[in-house]
Design a binder for these strands. Structure first.
Lengths: 343, 343
DNA sequence: AATATTTTCCAAAGCGCTTTGGAAAACTCA
DNA sequence: TGAGTTTTCCAAAGCGCTTTGGAAAATATT
């Protein structure tokens, strides 16, 4: 069923039917109701391509995921982020267009094509690195976009929504310091990723403000896997001067760290404290009465929702200045921390 | 730059330019090269809406994810599956269209709209339940689709690609039996999910064939979270008649189980054996020289790739009978299993 | 009753592409 | 050389929608 058929069925012109459905004022309520009812009954909906062609809008938002950079899909955060974003898209009639860049192909070329083909109205940039080139590129290309995270070294204005990773890790480190910990290890994500870079800044800033010297030998940076948490922690525990506390970048890493601690016959929260960042992923409920881990929490799903809202505002209002938003984390005390051992 | 402008630039008709770019034979090689070069230089690509309108093809494939059914996005497998699928889509010029159904809204209505609007050429059905209604619905709706998994109770023919979950769990259980284990617990996924249902069948079938009575008190079914693995295992270990081996549905659950075992002061692979299914997610490398867990392995990413290829074949060839494909798993021996304790 | 104003509707253009049905040009062959 | 073939190209229709510019009908104003 297309517009022509529907209008013939109703003995109306295509214009009137279109206007009735799109809420234009120059059609009587009686007619509008009649049209809407018929559309529903006949399961009519305007052809997306035709509508897009006529209006110049794609009603789609692009997410380009590169797998050459293997880290992207290592990202367990992806599912929850997409769920948050997509929910809001749906409410506003937008579709999410996911483009996976196969290994060996050029991510920028994908953006160029999206632009040339008018496939999307805007794009979302995920997992920015410290000096992410996509921001400058997309600005030049002239396609509206928003970044989930930031790129520290990028000084031009652009739209972003980020968690305050720096303050989160300041607070986490301060918290451990208050418990008497003086030797605190850091199991960070890859350091070229902006979020990891900022967390490290927070960690170092807190230590410095308490007069503790920064010791690169207990600071690590890697993909955030369980075995990474396990390996580094096991090594640390065996070292000459083991830490009394560990700061990890994700629950997965924290699980690995905990495994190493237990295997060493020590108790988490007594012999060794662990604080982790927690993206509140739906399959890691760190939310018992007393949570498993003391954590800086921030829901990646809610971040996605908010980011989508900002982006849709930008599309509706192309001349607005790029919005930015910084989300603060919540520090929740769980079972994984306690006073530094007397020693 | 659109087709008209490009053709004027080249002093050719739009037809000729279009044909040159789309590989039609009735244009000379010299002209074709000239056109292709100009297109590249001017960064021309055909407008997607216009092309879709003219050809009747959307060049998009839909994935509809319902969040009312919270389990879907709890699914940590999502990211890797999408990566596999998307890679293949890209190679064939397809885009992936992700539609998140917000809580409280009707998933079927989303499919109806996709159909009415001709937004997609086909859809992928993920995470089918035992009696999944989507299969019958989509058959009636008349939109090509393929299921990742199967629906045991659905008897009409439909396209699917699945892992042989039954045989996987037969093998895993047999393996434990061969090691002398007689009391084997099952930490399954939600039982209405088809994959979980089939795994349970495999488990039960193996036990029965060895004359072991099935004991529902050591069989569990839940969302596959770490704390689920931990809780159930902790309880099992405290029970009167604890198992000597545990079969888990995912690495995440296995990690929880391992935590409980260690906390009870026991050793995995000695006091208690664990076998898990492993979807080979990119952020859980269970691939050391000797892997952490003995596991039935099957890459969800590769499954996605293969499934995408099947679906694209179906689109190209609408009358083919629905393809089906069953992937066998690999059983790899890791550190988490050993002979049943003498006792 | 005649005119002005508002409400209600429509015909047709245009969005950018593909594709049909030919025409012109170039080439064969008798 | 003239008729038939092939190669090379084009004008124009059509995909299904939105939207412009008016016309007809209904209502208000003098």
């Amino acid at each position: 069923m297309n517009l022509k058929e529907l209008s013939e069925l109703l003995n109306l012109s295509q214009t009137t039917v279109s206007r009735a459905l799109n809420g234009f004022p120059e059609v009587s309520e009686r007619t509008r109701e009649r049209v809407q009812k018929a559309a529903k009954q006949n399961n009519y909906a305007p052809n997306k391509a035709a509508r897009g062609l006529a209006t110049g809008q794609a009603l789609s938002i692009g997410h380009v995921i590169s797998t050459t950079n293997q880290n992207e899909m290592v990202n367990p955060v992806f599912g929850d982020f997409v769920a948050g974003v997509g929910e809001v898209y749906s409410k506003h009639g937008y579709k999410m267009l996911l483009s996976i860049v196969p290994p060996g192909e050029d991510e920028y070329q994908v953006y160029r094509e999206l632009k040339a083909q008018s496939t999307v109205d805007a794009v979302v940039v995920q997992s920015p690195s410290v000096d992410d080139g996509r921001i400058e590129f997309l600005n030049k290309l002239g396609i509206p976009f928003i970044v989930h995270g930031r790129a520290s070294e990028c000084k031009v204005p652009y739209a972003w929504l980020d968690v305050n990773n720096r303050s989160a890790f300041v607070r986490a480190t301060d918290f451990l310091h208050d418990l008497g910990h003086r030797r605190i290890a850091l199991l960070n994500g890859r350091e070229h990723m902006d979020f990891a870079h900022r967390r490290q800044q927070g960690y170092e800033s807190s230590l410095s403000s308490h007069g503790i010297k920064i010791d690169p030998s207990i600071m690590f940076s890697s993909d955030m896997t369980e075995s990474y948490g396990y390996q580094r922690t096991a090594e640390l525990l065996k070292s000459d001067n083991p830490p009394t506390a560990i700061l990890t970048a994700s629950i997965i890493v924290a699980l690995g760290a905990r495994r190493a601690v237990q295997q060493a016959g020590l108790t988490v929260g007594q012999d060794i404290s662990i604080v982790t960042h927690d993206d509140r992923l739906s399959y890691f409920h760190n939310t018992a009465d007393v949570p498993m881990f003391t954590a800086t929490k921030s829901s990646v799903r809610e971040a996605g929702q908010r980011l989508a809202e900002l982006l849709i505002q930008m599309i509706a209002n192309p001349n607005m200045k790029p919005p930015t938003e910084l989300l603060e984390v919540e520090l929740t005390i769980g079972n994984s921390t306690g006073p530094a051992p007397a020693n």
